[in-house]
């Protein structure tokens, strides 16, 4: 069985494998989920929190978090991509059957073994649900290994909520607590309105046994952090995933550096304890 990772140490770490788009689902006008298959039964073999470098040949390459969980990657994997730049703009025009380039998986995954037996609270904003979904579905597929699962998710408007089918599925489960909020409501929205921190009053956690995983835009992190620290969640139990510009994925091109750390290989997952001294990290 060949792994995509083995490709990195063959001829050149920069040569991607040509993956085929097997399916595309539009979640919102800006976000689509691309389901990709690797050639010749090659496996991605990723862990939650990792990312790939995704290429559209002739346009460029960018780091994209893997949204499918390892537990649900049977011969394919999924990337949820916002149309935000040159490469993603062209990607959004592509059709099933088209070929893209993939390198990876890169980055330090979330330390799932350290989360075993813990209550998990997810605080997610916007596109942060893409990487979070990989963790959440992994946890739900091994549900007995974890304590409570609380998911707080905020988007700008109801129309910006991603993976609404799965949100409904999670909401129906008795072993998952899901709270949604939007900044601006639309007609028919009877849920919470306000920033994500307004959801914290709805949840009870046993702080010392809680792991928090917070994924979202940088502006959200500070406020979520204040809530979590305020509830007494230990600094080493609060986990983020950071977005940075990346060109290599292996700690050489320099773009993703936060002080001495490389987001691509030392992260993108970091605990607050690891980065709290590093101004500009959050």
């Amino acid at each position: 069985m060949t792994l995509l990772k083995d490709k990195i140490v063959s001829s050149s770490l920069y040569v991607p494998v040509q993956a085929t788009i097997r399916d595309i689902r539009a979640l919102t006008p800006l976000e689509k989920v691309f389901s990709l298959t690797l050639p010749d039964g090659m496996l991605l073999n990723h862990e939650p929190g990792q990312f790939v470098e995704l290429s559209v040949f002739g346009v460029g390459e960018a780091p994209i978090s893997i949204t499918s969980s390892p537990s649900r990657s049977n011969g394919f994997f999924e990337l949820c991509v916002r149309n935000a730049g040159d490469m993603t703009g062209v990607l959004h025009q592509m059709k099933p059957g088209d070929v893209v380039g993939v390198r990876g998986p890169f980055g330090r995954p979330f330390p799932m073994n350290r989360f075993l037996g813990k209550d998990l609270i997810f605080a997610i904003g916007g596109l942060g649900l893409a990487p979070a979904r990989s963790v959440i579905n992994q946890v739900l597929d091994e549900r007995g290994k974890y304590g409570k699962v609380i998911i707080l998710y905020g988007a700008r408007t109801p129309g910006d909520l991603l993976f609404t089918d799965e949100l409904e599925e999670w909401d129906r489960r008795s072993d998952v607590e899901l709270h949604l909020t939007v900044d601006r409501p639309a007609e028919g929205w009877d849920g919470n309105v306000g920033v994500i921190t307004t959801l914290f009053s709805h949840v009870q956690v046993y702080a010392r046994n809680t792991v928090a995983i917070t994924l979202g835009p940088p502006v959200m992190y500070r406020f979520v952090l204040m809530e979590l620290l305020g509830k007494g969640v230990p600094e080493g139990n609060i986990w983020f995933s950071f977005e940075r510009r990346m060109k290599c994925g292996v700690g050489k091109c320099g773009h993703c550096q936060i002080h001495h750390l490389y987001t691509c290989k030392d992260g993108p997952t970091f605990s607050f304890a690891e980065i709290k001294h590093l101004e500009g990290a959050l």
Binding site: F57, G58, G60, E61, K247, C248, K252, C253, G254, H255
Partner: peptide, 26 residues
């Protein structure tokens, strides 16, 4: 200093090209 950028350059056919590494700076 060795930081670099990676860009794609396409030839006139728009079907073939190169991926290029070039110096960048923090």
């Amino acid at each position: 200093c060795y930081c670099f950028n990676v860009i794609d350059e396409v030839d006139f056919s728009l079907n073939a090209g190169s991926r290029i590494r070039q110096w960048d700076g923090c």
